[in-house]
Design a protein around this nucleic acid. Sequence first.
DNA 1: TCAATTTCTTGGCGAGCGTCACAATACTGA
DNA 2: TCAGTATTGTGACGCTCGCCAAGAAATTGA
Lengths: 285, 285
Amino acid sequence: MRCAPKLAPASSLAAFALDDFESRSGSAASVVRTIAGLYLRHQSAPIPRPRAIELACAAGISSPAAQTAISRLIDRGLLEPVQTGELTVTAPAKAMFARGNRRIFTPRNMSNADHWVLVAFSVPESLRALRHQLRKHFIQLGGGLVSAGLWIFPEYLHAEVLEVLNALEARRYATLFVAQSPQYPGDARQAAAQWWDLAKISKLHHAFLATTAGLDAASAGEHIAYRSYVTLIDAWRAIPYLDPGLPEAMLPESWPGQESRQRFLEISESCKVRAQRYASLLLGR
Amino acid sequence: MRCAPKLAPASSLAAFALDDFESRSGSAASVVRTIAGLYLRHQSAPIPRPRAIELACAAGISSPAAQTAISRLIDRGLLEPVQTGELTVTAPAKAMFARGNRRIFTPRNMSNADHWVLVAFSVPESLRALRHQLRKHFIQLGGGLVSAGLWIFPEYLHAEVLEVLNALEARRYATLFVAQSPQYPGDARQAAAQWWDLAKISKLHHAFLATTAGLDAASAGEHIAYRSYVTLIDAWRAIPYLDPGLPEAMLPESWPGQESRQRFLEISESCKVRAQRYASLLLGR
DNA sequence: TCAATTTCTTGGCGAGCGTCACAATACTGA
DNA sequence: TCAGTATTGTGACGCTCGCCAAGAAATTGA
């Protein structure tokens, strides 16, 4: 019998039931993880380890870095060796990838008329760690902090908020409301700037735009398209989580969100098919 | 020039802009106040003081008690002597009575589908008195406390909540949401029992039911009808303020609200016209 | 595998909020 | 007007909140 995948003490279990962003985008670990989510998870047959490494190398990762990255994903329980030198994506990882799919590839924006989800919670001081966890995951989900103990989300995140609460076994400490038309003291932009860390989110977008600036791979070959696509997804992946996609009326003057989103959709559209073909080519060898 | 009406230091000003319940129902002061709201305020001509006293006596108040009660209402600025021995209801008092009219005489009940108003507020520690005021008026308005700093009201109280916030100059510290379908940890009844002081509200209803138990004045004369009606209104007046009229799904097993409300409507219907006629009779003398 | 760096967890801190108790005030009825 | 009573305003307390910093742990690339 094989050893169970090693899990970090507290958070990884929840992170697995939820979603994690434990590697920095652009790093070898992150890119391999992206590749796993994009291609490996759809393979029904086990993948020979050299093929996986080739996929990573083709995306610009050095061979030894890819080696270690894969080993570490095995340790984390995302990948699983089935035979000597062959790998599969584990079931919980597949589920996790599937959950993230819609959010990443069809990022949503709110309109001014969209509704909200409010979460009012109060946990006793004895469970302080839980509070921290909740705050962390709420931020990671795109939540804003209205006032102490009251969080706000776009309504399209309703289900995911409940998932967080359930996964952390905090459902009993929270009350949810579906709300419309908030009436703040000032205007909408003031409220948004107070509830969300817009500076941080803006930085994410600018980093994405910088990373993907030279990625016009419309007329390049399949290899370049593949590499561009993986880079794109890897740089993009976390953004639709942290950015709630606030309606235009709540955002500051020059907000990079729209440009960023458009860039993603354009390059994605332009590279996706050829990237897939190239990945299949490597995997099918 | 006459002295301005004496006002208590802080609260009466706000209470005048809002509504006050500074006298206990059933007391002479309260009954005279009820009579002022029911009849005196509709008189265009000044009312001779003896007539006002007769109205109070006819409702079961002793003559000297009526005297002092009227004097005190003058001190409070609700009544105003225009000539020697003649009275009018002051303009702000008329406005206050008018505001209370709909709430008292057409008490509302929520249905299970009705929406809510959420008020999230946060005031700095330096304005602690304001916090107390807010809490007091929110309770007096039928609000429930969801968690620290988050109050909930039936949506039909939306305007009145805003009035409280404006009158206390607290608009800038509060954010309002119109919400639907709260999702509590437990069931609806548990949530209501936690958010509102249902025991206190229940006591109010039972007190009302006890006071109005023997008031079947359907076939009595105009005097009895008048007396019953004033007693009824006086005993009832505060209830629609403190009771939000929660939907049936949120109330405990044996809730007196429905019976109480029905009793009010029945006796009101049965006595109103005759009571009015009797009051006109006394006033027209 | 290993060291540098970054993250994350953990505990302390100040602030906001409701509750409670007490003193001052206001109300009540004779 | 006056004494008895109830209510209200005020301050202290405990709880929970987010924030911050230091220590622990994990991640990263070679």
